[in-house]
């Protein structure tokens, strides 16, 4: 049974992650690259486009010669494929969604043990709930960030992010499968708590990123996430319901 769980989750996650990566590269990446020009007046990540020396200081000589014009908005990056950088994005997108897929299938199996049966099309709802729990709820406090945006300490934000995801997903599960008013009341408290406490924000917002870009980035990141998550739910429920009855 373990191998059926793992293969269903990993195939669903890899497929959804690949779709998420393609949506990212076409719709989200151009906004991100544009914002990087403002982060330090030049491209700061992967500045030497397709070499494989990640994690080193960017070479100022490798910055585009016309970055002043680009930063002024005359030369927004378009759709283009940088093998090293975008290849890593595809790989890590598939890894992240494989992780989501494993947790989703584990929760589906746990729920089925309690007497529910999950049909393939119900997977769409599971995916939608996953999107709300993992992307929309954290974004309510910490909008998807562009590089260069002013932000609070990374440790505090990561802690708030994890707490929000866990509490929201647990709340959604209680709303869907809990019994009675007690469970629903607890779910409401759990879903509201991280936002009443509030996400960590910097004392003042001083980032160089234009708000127009930041708004477009947040909208596109959430939109791409919604598509990828609903498909992840559909794939996971379809593969798992077929595998377990095989």
């Amino acid at each position: 049974m373990l191998s059926k769980l793992l293969t269903s989750a990993l195939i669903a996650g890899a497929a959804a992650g690949l779709i998420a990566a393609l949506l990212q590269l076409v719709f989200v990446q151009p906004v991100l690259l544009h914002a990087e020009l403002y982060e330090g007046g030049e491209r700061t990540h992967f500045a030497a486009a397709s070499d494989h020396h990640h994690g080193e200081e960017p070479d100022p000589e490798a910055a585009p010669a016309d970055h002043d014009h680009a930063a002024a908005g005359h030369d927004a990056p378009g759709i283009g494929f940088e093998a090293g950088r975008d290849g890593l994005s595809i790989l890590f997108s598939m890894l992240v969604y494989a992780g989501y897929g494993l947790l989703l299938v584990a929760l589906m199996a746990l729920t089925e043990n309690r007497g529910h049966r999950i049909a393939p099309r119900e997977g769409l709802l599971w995916g939608l709930a996953g999107f709300i729990g993992v992307q929309l709820a954290p974004a309510f406090g910490l909008a998807p960030e562009l590089p260069g945006m002013a932000a609070a300490d990374i440790g505090a934000r990561a802690l708030w992010w994890v707490a929000t995801v866990v509490l929201t997903c647990a709340a959604l599960w209680l709303i869907a499968f809990g019994n009675g008013w007690g469970a629903w009341a607890l779910a409401i408290v759990m879903a509201l708590a991280p936002h009443l406490v509030g996400a960590p924000h910097p004392a003042e917002f001083t980032g160089p990123t234009p708000p127009e870009l930041a708004a477009q980035f947040a909208g596109r990141a959430l939109g791409a996430g919604l598509v990828a998550w609903t498909l992840l739910g559909l794939f996971a429920a379809s593969l798992w319901s077929r595998a377990r009855s095989a």
Partner: peptide, 20 residues
């Protein structure tokens, strides 16, 4: 980790993880 952060950088931003 520096290496992981750099490799996953764009995906972390695009999927709403707190990044740096």
């Amino acid at each position: 980790s520096e290496t992981l952060h750099d490799a996953a950088h764009d995906v972390r931003h695009a999927t709403g993880f707190p990044c740096h």
